[in-house]
Design a binder for these strands. Structure first.
Lengths: 238, 238
DNA sequence: ACACCCATGTAAGGTGTTACATGATTAG
DNA sequence: CTAATCATGTAACACCTTACATGGGTGT
C-alpha cells in the first residue's frame, strides 16, 4: 500500500488547493515546483483526476470561467478543462495533511508531505520530521551492521559505494536535525496543540522560521550573491 | 527499456561470478553488500534466475557439490539449488561490463555498474563516471532553471526542499569529480587502451587508487565539533 | 503549409509486488 | 512438537508507462 498514486492524489489536491488548473499545467507543476518525484505520465494523471472527480473532491469546469480570468490567463487560455477543489476535497486534503502514519516518512511520501508543509500544522510537521529521522536512523543502523559484517570481503569500489550511500543518509539526518531545531525554535514547544484550524484561507501564514542556508542553492553556476532571501510575506500562490 | 530487471540480471551474474550461490543467499547479498537498490522480491528473482539458466548463462547444481565443499558450507549446507556461472555466462557478463550506453548512468544502473567496477576496465570506468557526471549536470541545469522561474511563487518549505535536492545532486557531482580524479591519477591518461584483459582472475588486483576518505563511514551520530544543534537527545520515536 | 507546443484521453503491455503454497531444517 | 528461519516457487494483481488517437492554436 505504498501506492505512488496515493502520492499523486495528495499532490494534486494540494496543488489545486492553491488555484484551479487543468491537467497539462498540473503535470508541469508536479515535475518542477515539486520536482522531487519523477514525472508521472498523463496515463497516470488523467485517470487519477477522474477518480478524484468521482469522489467529489474535484469538479471539472470549462476553461476560462469568469472568476478565473486571472488564473486562466496565466495558465494558458486554451484550457479545456479546469479542475477545482470542492469543499469536500478541501476537507479531505486537510485530513490527509494531518495523517502521520508510517507511510508519511517513506521516501517519496515524505517529499510530498514536506512540499505541503506550508499548509501543515506544526505538530504534524514535527511528527513527520521526527518519524522520517528515525526511519533514516534505522536504515543507517542496518547499513552499519551489514558493513561491519562484510567489510573484509568487499573490494574498494563496493566499499566506497556503501560509504557514499551512508554519507548521504547521514547528511539527510543532519538536515532533518536542523529542520527540527528550527521548528522548535519557531515558537515554544507547547502552543499549537491542535487547537484552531488556524491557517485556513491560504498559504499566507508565516512559516515560523526555517533554516536559511541558501549557500548551496546558488553554488553551482550562478553565484550572484543573492542578498535578501525572498520575504515570506508574499501572499503566495494566488 | 530502463528495465530494472536488467539491473537484476547484471548483478546476479556479477555476484555469481565471485562464487556460486543459491537464490536465497543471492537475494540477501543483493540487499546488503550491494545495498543500493531496494529489495527485489523472490517473485522477481526466481523467474530471473530461470531466464538466465534458459539463456545458458547459469547452470543449476544440487547443493554441496564436491568441488564446492567450501563455498557450500559457507553459504549454508541446506542449499537446494546452487547457481553457477557458465563460461557463456562469464563471457556475457564481461560484455555487459564493457557496455557504456546512456543506460549505464541512470540512477540504479549506475549504482550496479559501480558495484562491479572492481571487474571493470579503467577506460570503461572512466566513461561511466563521466557519463554519470554529465547526466547529473544536466539535471542540475534543469533544476536551476525551474528554480529561477518559480522562485518567487514558492513558499519557504518548497524552496528548502528544492535547495536540499539540488545540494544532494551537487554533492554527488563532487564525489564523481574525486573519483574521476583518482582514476586519472591511478595511471597515466594513455595506457590501458583496451589492451590486455589484465585483471582476470579475481578482484584482488590493486584498484589503482581510490579516494580514501573513510571519515564519514564511522561518523555516525556523534559529530565531533558540531557548533550547532549538539543534542538530538534521541528518544528514538520509532 | 508545416512543425511544434498545448491539451485530453485510452488501450495495451511490461514490470514488479503481494499473497499464497510448499516443504526442509534447526532451536526451544 | 512447535515456531522460526531457510528455501523455492507461482499466480493474481497493482501500478505505471508507452504508444496511439485526436484536435486546437501559433510561429515561420
Amino acid at each position: 500500500m505504498s501506492r505512488r498514486s496515493g502520492i499523486l492524489e495528495f499532490a494534486v489536491l494540494g496543488l489545486l488547493r492553491e488555484s484551479p488548473m487543468h491537467g497539462y499545467e498540473l503535470r508541469k507543476r508536479l515535475n518542477t515546483s515539486l520536482g522531487i518525484f519523477r514525472a508521472f505520465s498523463y496515463g497516470t494523471l488523467y485517470p487519477c483526476l477522474k477518480t478524484l472527480v468521482a469522489n467529489g473532491w474535484l469538479i471539472e469546469e470549462p476553461g476560462s470561467a469568469p472568476e478565473d480570468a486571472l488564473a486562466a490567463s496565466l495558465a494558458g487560455r486554451r484550457a479545456k478543462i479546469v479542475y477545482r477543489l470542492t469543499a469536500d476535497g478541501k476537507e479531505h486534503f486537510e485530513e490527509l495533511l494531518s495523517h502521520t502514519g508510517p507511510d508519511a516518512w517513506e521516501d517519496e511520501h515524505f517529499a510530498a508531505r514536506f512540499a505541503f508543509f506550508g499548509q501543515t500544522e506544526r505538530e504534524v510537521r514535527m511528527r513527520v520530521l521526527e518519524g522520517r529521522r528515525s526511519r533514516l536512523e534505522e536504515r543507517l543502523e542496518k547499513m552499519r551492521a551489514s558493513l561491519v559484517r562484510t567489510r573484509e570481503r568487499l573490494d574498494d569500489y563496493t566499499l566506497e559505494l556503501q560509504r557514499h550511500g551512508m554519507e548521504s543518509v547521514e547528511r539527510e539526518v543532519r538536515w532533518l536535525n536542523e529542520l527540527i531545531e528550527s521548528e522548535r525554535a519557531g515558537r515554544d514547544q507547547r502552543r499549537s496543540v491542535h487547537a484552531e484550524p488556524a491557517e485556513q484561507k491560504g498559504a499566507s501564514e508565516e512559516p515560523d522560521g526555517l533554516p536559511r542556508h541558501q549557500d548551496a542553492a546558488s553554488s553551482g553556476g550562478t553565484p550572484p550573491g543573492r542578498p535578501g532571501p525572498p520575504d515570506p510575506s508574499a501572499e503566495g500562490a494566488g
